[in-house]
């Protein structure tokens, strides 16, 4: 019966995550617009976008693109489902990675230079954020003794107290996954980029709608990972997430887009260093 309870939690979590993810995306655009002295779109705008994209005539270049869009969406959905079912963190991480890899493979399957360059940059971005997330997960496991999410909720002090540097590393990974400046290198929300829309260039219509929903679910998943750092009180959790997301928007609006060389030197390097410092400290206090 425990398993049935967890599965139910997972399904409800997934359904809620889809809606909340869309509204978070709308809130993101609204706050960004306000920071730029504009009004911005209505909060439900991402839903209108996805509905409109769903209704476009099919123009996919090849069948592989369609398959990859489905697989990306399914992987993102599965990882969110597993998260709400309080499963294993490592498993969640690898399912998320599979989705990202299929998105890249779809982009590589088309004979378009923008798509290829975008796909290569996306792989470099994955190369940057994945070590950071793995180190965060290892840190959590060292502290709680297990990879399972349920064990985090058994603690009575927030993880943030003992793993602040790991939270910063997670923040860097979050910026990259959200496609925010300075890391909107492979595909930018703004679309004013030298590789047009990068890895997303060749996805159109229904496939783009699926990738958009997958992106919402990824955001919810990462916010979920951030929320693990304050698992003791609901208000604290909400505040932590609000401050984190606002910080992401702030950094987006005060920086230009940088190159992947900079990202690897200045984001992966220091991020890993910070994470290692925190891990060593956790090891020392054991």
């Amino acid at each position: 019966m425990m398993i049935l309870g967890k599965l139910l939690l997972g399904v409800i979590g997934l359904a809620l995550a889809t809606f909340i993810g869309g509204f978070i995306s709308g809130l993101d655009r609204k706050i960004t617009a306000r920071m730029q002295s504009r009004f911005g779109p209505p909060l439900a705008q991402p839903f209108y976008d996805v509905l409109k994209l769903w209704g476009k005539a099919p123009m996919a270049v090849n069948a592989w693109l369609v398959l990859c869009a489905y697989l990306t969406l399914m992987a993102s959905a599965l990882s969110v489902f597993l998260f709400f079912a309080q499963s294993d963190l490592l498993l969640i991480f690898f399912v998320m990675t599979i989705g990202a890899v299929f998105q890249v493979m779809g982009a590589l399957s088309v004979n378009s230079p923008f798509s290829h360059v975008g796909a290569q940059r996306e792989l470099l971005q994955m190369f940057t954020y994945e070590p950071l997330i793995i180190l965060v997960i290892i840190g959590i496991a060292m502290h709680t003794g297990s990879f399972s999410i349920a064990s985090i909720y058994a603690l009575d002090t927030p993880l943030l107290y003992s793993m602040p540097f790991l939270y910063v590393a997670l923040g860097i990974a979050f910026t990259i996954k959200l496609r925010k400046s300075p890391f909107d290198i492979s595909a930018s929300h703004h679309g004013h980029q030298e590789i047009v829309r990068g890895v997303l260039t060749e996805y159109t219509g229904r496939q783009l709608a699926m990738l958009e929903v997958a992106h919402w679910l990824d955001v919810v998943l990462l916010l979920g990972l951030c929320s693990l750092f304050w698992s003791t009180s609901a208000i604290g959790l909400f505040l932590l997430l609000a401050v984190t997301y606002f910080a992401e928007l702030f950094v987006d609006n005060v920086s230009a887009r940088l190159t992947w060389g900079w990202m690897i030197k200045r984001a992966l390097g220091p991020g890993v260093a910070l994470a290692m410092v925190n891990l060593l400290w956790l090891y020392a206090i054991k």
Binding site: A33, S37, R38, G40, G191, R197, L200, T201, E202, T204
Partner: peptide, 22 residues
Amino acid sequence: LTPVHDVERFGIINVGNPKHAD
């Protein structure tokens, strides 16, 4: 697209890609 006129209020985004545009 810029502050005084701001078409994003109507949901209009300038995507540079004809495959994504209406």
